[in-house]
Design a protein around this nucleic acid. Structure first.
Lengths: 194, 194
DNA sequence: TATACTTTTAGTATCTACTCTTAAAAGCAA
DNA sequence: TTGCTTTTAAGAGTAGATACTAAAAGTATA
């Protein structure tokens, strides 16, 4: 109803925009929007190689479903390449664009933190550990594609508290450092206060 | 092929799980999985009021599409319930067993950190922000099922550096606190050192 | 063992939102 | 008017269902 007297070119340009804006419109709704017949919309979609409604919906669903799954930060630990329990550990994380902010290539802070935190926990000889306190510092932004090498070192053990120093590097350049105080929960299963 | 000799109840229980795990399976694939006819699957879906494949896909698509539209910060961990830019923000995160360590019910530190970090970034009025330094403290362990309420407050603004204080609560009890220094990258696009 | 009831399977018609094909009408330009 | 593009129409076929009817198979009970 709204768009009248458009040239074929204009209509097709707008069609692409309309479909990317709202992929949930079927051919009939589109034909009403552009004041043409369904067949014209279908011809347009064919020429522009635009997928049909159900395909569009499926794509949206799959993309986001994958996103939700990849956002599972719990799984981001990197690859453990060296480990001497209660002494030191090294892990490597290959960063991807999935770990960035929407438009930029800058890796999100929680991803880097997750690598450091996971490594700190892995380095500790305890079935379950919990981050008590962590002083962390981001020194340089990390970009998608860069390989993060995290090195953990256990500096002090005091009862069920263990102090771990984690440094993360990109090509020998330090990009992050953090001090983790980890508390083993084995002897403290019942207590809530740490 | 895999599931044989299941009772109706068992099959229906598994069907719900299967469909929520992977909403992209059609009735035929489900019937093969459970070694029953398509009609049986359809009867089951009717009884359990489970929507058909296309409806399920549409729901997945719409949920995530709405999410991406409502907040440009698609990476937010937890649900943003209140926001006054550059002043304060509140987000809620329902914890699940997926966010825990292997056997225990203790939520992983990086999940809690991610909520705090994301909220801090969302609260800042900048297209892209990066965590510069964060002093964080875990005060109590969080268990799966608990609802995390994160409250962020912008305490200081100095040039392109903004200081955000985030506290996370479980039922009024503080479980985490952290001070984030966020650096806007807008004016610093070219610089790498922060 | 026969009867009753539940569960499963089968078959047909109908639906939506298409594709793919053939064909005709409408618009416009030389 | 002829020739070309653009648009519309009509018909058959498709996937993945719904809705309905009916029959077969399985199980429990008297």
């Amino acid at each position: 109803m709204s768009k009248k007297g458009l040239s074929k070119k204009e209509r097709q340009r707008l069609l692409i925009k309309t479909i990317t804006d709202d992929p949930f419109l079927n051919d009939e709704e589109l034909s009403e929007k552009f004041n043409v017949s369904i067949q014209t919309i279908r011809l347009d979609r064919m020429e522009l190689k635009l997928p049909e409604l159900r395909e569009r919906i499926k794509t949206v669903a799959e993309e986001n479903y994958a996103k939700v799954r990849s956002i599972d930060i719990a799984e981001i630990v990197g690859e453990l390449v060296d480990l001497e329990l209660d002494k030191r550990g090294i892990s490597i994380l290959e960063t991807t664009s999935k770990m960035t902010f929407g438009k930029t290539k800058v890796i999100r802070g929680e991803i880097i933190f997750a690598q450091a935190n996971s490594l700190a926990i892995a380095t500790i000889d305890a079935k379950v550990a919990l981050t008590g306190v962590a002083n962390i510092k981001y020194k340089l932004p990390v970009y998608a594609g860069q390989k993060l090498v995290a090195k953990a070192e256990v500096t002090r053990v005091r009862g069920n508290k263990k102090f771990v120093f984690v440094k993360i590097y990109v090509k020998q350049q330090e990009v992050f450092r953090g001090k983790f105080i980890l508390v083993s929960l084995e002897d403290e299963e019942k207590k809530t206060d740490i």
